[in-house]
């Protein structure tokens, strides 16, 4: 090797192999792009692209099949976990994950999610929590923070009328069937690294047949929050993280049916 070739800068970071070379349809500053990238990186790391099946819920994440080079099924409103259960039982050697938003998973699909978790299905659920229904125009979701103004809570969410925001990760961590429950964010490089680790861990535990794995990712929705991307990321730090604390809430070391 010549000295010139040795000194030539090498690519140290780029588009993951499993992420198709097409532009995202997401709004500027939307963290869905980051999450797609993390999922593609996890798939590449384990080399399971040919045997990974994704199930996309309804919402902005619905176009998962356009961006990640794997087989993706579309689930009707909220039924991604139920569909993933079927897929994972038919293909026990495959890696099955669902990609859902908070309007999908925490509202209409809460029953499917809780029962899939309770049965300890071998699936990974990636829950992108941005506190609003993003695709349909920013309506109030079960995870909308108190006082947050949305198109259906123009005076801000109030406990008396709409209740408190649901903490999905804490709720699922209490179930026996869940093997790994974590909450991460992608507002800073540090949190992104932690999020990547959590997603990889969830995939690893699913490959090891440990049970249901759940990763909640706090994400910004600059368009529906009515702010720019940088301010939206600041809001994640200042308002969301204090209510939805980050960290690994549950991690099992052995499968409970052993």
């Amino acid at each position: 090797m010549t000295t010139e070739a040795k000194d030539k800068p090498k690519k140290v970071y780029g588009r993951p192999e499993s992420l198709k070379d097409v532009g995202f349809h997401f709004c500027p500053g939307c963290n869905h792009g980051n999450v797609h990238k993390m999922v593609a990186e996890a798939i590449d790391e384990f080399g399971v692209r040919e045997k990974t099946i994704g199930v996309a819920g309804v919402g902005c994440g619905v176009f998962l099949y356009n961006y990640i080079d794997i087989d993706v099924l579309e689930a009707p409103h909220g039924r991604a976990c139920a569909e993933a259960t079927g897929v994972s039982r038919v293909h026990p050697d495959h890696v099955v994950f669902t990609y859902q938003g908070d309007g999908d998973l925490a509202a209409i699909g809460i029953a499917e999610t809780i029962h899939a978790a309770n049965r300890g299905e071998h699936i990974t659920v990636l829950f992108v929590n941005n506190t609003v229904y993003g695709m349909t125009g920013g309506q109030m979701a079960p995870t909308t923070l108190l006082g947050q103004k949305t198109t259906t809570s123009p005076y801000g969410r109030e406990f008396m009328g709409e209740g408190y925001p649901i903490k999905m990760a804490e709720m699922l961590a209490t179930l026996e069937g869940t093997a790994f429950v974590a909450r991460v964010a992608c507002n800073t490089p540090k949190n992104i690294m932690a999020a990547k680790r959590a997603i990889k861990k969830a995939f690893k535990m699913q490959i090891d047949k440990m049970g249901f794995t759940f990763v909640e990712i706090l994400s910004a929705c600059p368009t529906n929050w009515g702010m720019d991307a940088v301010t939206a990321n600041k809001r994640v730090e200042e308002e969301m993280i204090p209510y939805f604390p980050l960290g690994i809430l549950k991690e099992r070391t052995t499968a409970d049916y052993l």
Binding site: K10, R15, N34, P189, I192
Partner: peptide, 19 residues
């Protein structure tokens, strides 16, 4: 320095880092 922070946070995968 090639710290990759820009590329990590880019939601559109528009940045490649060489080092």
């Amino acid at each position: 320095k090639g710290c990759k922070f820009c590329a990590e946070t880019c939601p559109d995968c528009a940045i490649e880092v060489y080092k």
